[in-house]
């Protein structure tokens, strides 16, 4: 009996000591949440959280901040919506991560200036003209390289519903379905994307399985497609760490400098 009481007292003391520590730790964790990027740095960020105890939605690389592992490939996704020639996919089997929440200007676009009416001074013809307001908001569009000077803003963006894109017929297209717009010109890529050859899908690999589809703008920046610093069409990113050197090999460059004796 005495022993029991003694143990209980110890337990209580420990708990009392530990509780503030736990609280502090929790606060710390909340303060620095882990965010890593999927394909495009700066445009496809994903926040790490736990789906179940011990099962995170993603694991992030500590060195480069890249997504390394998916606990749940469908985390934070919505149904893809109607896609021409993909009607055969059963409802809910094709999902996407909405792009809208990544676009911080989108809410403003819908309400502030372009709320469904043609703003004053809006060009009547389809010829490109400088739009100072937009250029000050987004400096990178001043010298738009997409199409090498053959297209401009309103070839992709809807003129009055600025929180939407535009298709061939002038009808609005959601930012979550950019493939409907991009396929206007890049038809071969759209065909390959539909078949899963271009781009990326994660989830179940069987052709009837549920998949999360990556849409065009998750990997490509449409405003910045011709950049001299990149190679092979991809923006350069930092690589993960190299493998361990074989035992006894001091320098990876040794062979190329000294050669191998024949």
């Amino acid at each position: 009996m005495k022993k029991l009481v003694f143990h209980t007292v110890i337990l209580a003391v420990c708990c009392a000591a530990a509780t503030p520590a736990f609280a502090q730790e929790a606060a710390k964790q909340e303060a620095k949440e882990t965010i890593c990027f999927e394909s495009r740095k700066g445009a496809s960020e994903i926040t790490k959280h736990e789906i179940k105890p011990g099962l995170p939605n993603v694991k992030c690389s500590p060195t480069t901040g890249a997504t390394l592992w998916y606990g749940d490939p469908y985390d934070g996704t919505v149904p893809m919506g109607k896609m021409p020639l993909l009607d055969g996919i059963p409802e809910g089997k094709a999902v996407v991560r909405p792009r809208s929440e990544k676009l911080n200007l989108l809410g403003m676009c819908a309400t502030a200036c372009h709320n469904g009416v043609v703003p004053p001074g809006f060009p009547k013809h389809k010829k490109p003209v400088p739009i100072p307001t937009m250029e000050s908001l987004l400096p990178e569009v001043k010298n738009l390289q997409h199409g090498r000077g053959r297209i401009w803003c309103l070839d992709c963006h809807h003129s009055t519903k600025r929180n939407m894109l535009v298709d061939h017929f002038g009808d609005p297209v959601s930012f979550d379905q950019p493939q409907l717009l991009c396929g206007k010109c890049h038809g071969d890529k759209l065909r390959d994307w539909r078949d899963g050859i271009h781009g990326k899908r994660i989830g179940e690999f069987v052709s009837t399985g549920k998949k999360r589809w990556f849409v065009c703008t998750e990997c490509h920046n449409p405003h910045d497609v011709q950049d001299g610093a990149r190679n092979k069409g991809f923006v350069q990113i930092a690589p993960e760490s190299p493998p361990q050197l074989p035992n006894g090999m001091k320098d990876a460059k040794h062979e190329s400098v000294h050669g191998i004796a024949h």
Binding site: T67, K200, I202, E204, F214, F234
Partner: peptide, 20 residues
């Protein structure tokens, strides 16, 4: 269990493809 391999899921450029 018909899930994609881990390397397919993380490839940032979609170079890796897997199927039946």
């Amino acid at each position: 269990h018909s899930r994609y391999p881990a390397c397919v899921e993380v490839c940032p450029v979609g170079a890796r493809k897997f199927g039946n």
